[in-house]
Computed example of a mutant assay.
Amino acid sequence: MVSGDIAKVRDFVREFLTGAQTVHGWAVSARAMDAARLVASELATNVCKYAPGPCLVDLETDGTTLSIVMWDSGAVLPVASDADPTRIGQHGLELVLMVCQSLEVRRETVGKSLRARVTLSGNSDTSSDRTAE
């Protein structure tokens, strides 16, 4: 993945959710659309910076929650840094954790996968289940 692909991932999420609204009549709030695009963008940015090789993006929804799954070939699992308002950069995973309902990080046979869940109603309750394996 190269930096230009990050915008393609954001557009992919927008098109997917717009299609879910049009085809299935599922409600997707503006907040949820923005949060989903932000999460996908931050996950894709991490792939560009830290995971050489191929990656895959998968989107799934049941009309209530969007799952964004990003797989890459990098072996290092991401870890959110401690809060530090003076730090420049490296806030992506912190942002993801703030806006998604849950984030799961898993080692795979090759590389790792991250599954972030975003509530489509736009409910601001982000108390979530965050796990890493």
Rank of each mutant, 00 (worst) to 15 (best):
L56S: 12
E60K: 10
R31M: 04
A75Y: 03
N46P: 02
P52R: 11
V79I: 13
L43W: 05
T45V: 02
A51P: 02
L38K: 02
A75S: 10
V47M: 04
R31W: 04
W71A: 08
P78T: 08
G53S: 10
V57T: 12
R31E: 12
L38T: 13
S29F: 09
A36I: 00
I68F: 01
A51C: 13
K49A: 13
A35W: 00
G63E: 07
T64R: 14
E60H: 13
S73C: 10
T65G: 04
G74H: 05
E42G: 01
V28A: 09
V79Q: 15
A75N: 06
T22G: 01
L77Y: 03
R37G: 15
A35M: 01
L66N: 05
M70P: 04
I68Q: 01
V79W: 00
P54G: 08
E42R: 05
S67F: 00
G53Q: 11
H24M: 09
T22V: 13
I68L: 15
W71Q: 11
L43M: 15
A36S: 15
S29L: 01
W71Y: 12
V28L: 07
L77I: 10
S67I: 02
P54S: 12
V76C: 06
P54F: 05
S29H: 08
E60R: 14
G25V: 12
S81F: 02
M33E: 07
G74N: 06
A75P: 03
M70A: 03
S67Y: 02
L38V: 13
K49L: 15
D58H: 12
T64C: 07
T45M: 11
M33Q: 10
P54Y: 02
V76I: 12
A36Y: 05
V23S: 08
H24D: 02
D58M: 09
H24S: 03
D62H: 09
A75M: 06
T64S: 14
S67W: 03
M70Q: 07
G25E: 07
C55Y: 10
T22A: 15
V39I: 13
T65Y: 09
E60L: 13
Y50I: 03
I68V: 15
K49T: 07
A80P: 13
T65C: 08
M70V: 15
Y50L: 12
Q21F: 04
Y50P: 05
A75Q: 07
V47D: 06
V23A: 11
Q21T: 13
S73T: 11
D58T: 14
R37H: 00
V69N: 01
